[in-house]
Design a protein around this nucleic acid. Sequence first.
DNA 1: CGTGAATTTGATTTAGCTCAAGCGGGGTGG
DNA 2: CCACCCCGCTTGAGCTAAATCAAATTCACG
Lengths: 254, 254
Amino acid sequence: LPHVLVRKLEGFAELSETDRQAIESLCGKTRTVRAGEDLIRGGERPDKVFLLLEGWGFRYKLMPDGQRQILAYLIPGDLCDIHIFVLKRMDHGIALLSPGAVTTISPGKLIEVMDRHPRVQRALWWSSLVDEAILREWLVNLGQRDAHDSLAHLLCEMWFRMRAVGLAEAGKPFSLPLTQAQLGDTLGLTPVAVNRALQRLRGEGLISLQDKQLTIHDPERLAAISGFEPNYLHLDRNGQSSGLERQTLDACER
Amino acid sequence: LPHVLVRKLEGFAELSETDRQAIESLCGKTRTVRAGEDLIRGGERPDKVFLLLEGWGFRYKLMPDGQRQILAYLIPGDLCDIHIFVLKRMDHGIALLSPGAVTTISPGKLIEVMDRHPRVQRALWWSSLVDEAILREWLVNLGQRDAHDSLAHLLCEMWFRMRAVGLAEAGKPFSLPLTQAQLGDTLGLTPVAVNRALQRLRGEGLISLQDKQLTIHDPERLAAISGFEPNYLHLDRNGQSSGLERQTLDACER
DNA sequence: CGTGAATTTGATTTAGCTCAAGCGGGGTGG
DNA sequence: CCACCCCGCTTGAGCTAAATCAAATTCACG
């Protein structure tokens, strides 16, 4: 089975066999994690990088009144995160939504691999740029779109992301292990607003969602109503993931 | 006069004299930019990096209906941006809010300097982590805080950022060249909601804002009501900006 | 089975939107 | 030099999407 991180990074850069081996050598022992378990909490000093192997995770911030804002979803292959170990303390927490598995990577080893394998470094860099682009698009969701449209947009995004790592295909249902309350914490809505928006999407024949399995019946229409433009995910390299400009690539290569 | 980018990066890492010279050598000829002028538009292929020398800039996305979401503010010393030249096309635009000046940096030269000056590279990396952290905090603003609190939070943030580059000091007014409509595009509010929230902040004796000059009369109270916690800006290195953990620093140093 | 969590539905309230009108000041052109 | 105009700010009066409150129903799991 192809390593989940290799698969993800191959979406961002062409990797050699030794690149692939280097990536695989990063991983330590895997650890299973219960649903809801924190990998790290806001304010803690991170000393290792987690790689999510199975299940979904999420970044979050807690408000003094107990409200929660979800800042990102992590799916298999995502690092949590490549670079935060540079900073003294986490400014947010990371937890699992569903039971899953992670492996830990030591910062030192990661830096070593990045030094020796520029293509890997570039792929990691790229991937963190995509994370930032997603954050910007979520800002648009919260700032400009109403409940119905922002939910539609989020579902489109998750479908594209899952497809990019081989966990979803056109026309088939895929796993979306989120409660309506968690969707609400993502979009700044109450659970009841999420419920009604979901009803409407179902009524419009756009999606089915039951038992945490989401089916998107009409991706084009769903994208159209929500203004979803997949370019921000930078996934257009050979139809999958975005390519580098040649000159920049060469420059990076030294 | 100390170079604006040097000053900013010194907030993130201790730099040697040669580091400082390398940074200054990056800059080409400066160009003045009119208020409202685009540096780059969404969808374009970036081929250079801009460094903002004077004035305020902002990142934005346009909606099909003409609505605008502001994604970030850029103040003197900010790069727009260090790394986006890796990606094929901009997924957002960058423009100036006020008349200003920029200089352009070639990607190749930047990569060369980063290779030769690891401390500079780390400072740039750090600074992009802070940008991401700001994005996360804005998400909390839009998702969880009401108009009054999110406006208060944003004003706190801008005060801290301006202070960190020496453009504001405690008790004194500083330049905030934003219209109420632009504040609205930032916080997902209409201009009239912004106006009323500003009135209330003024009425509470927290701020004065006239002629684009903002005075914060009671920073503690303003921070308290909005739940502002400056740690996400990672500015605590010797009271200014956050320090690296020793071991990580050494690891990065190779 | 039973219990707590997740979903659904309904009724009411409200923060912020929309629409609209007035005001002030700075820049432009006659 | 003045008149005009445009833009940003302010204020007022409804309106509406989503919040809040509440309860019923279904579901997952021990």
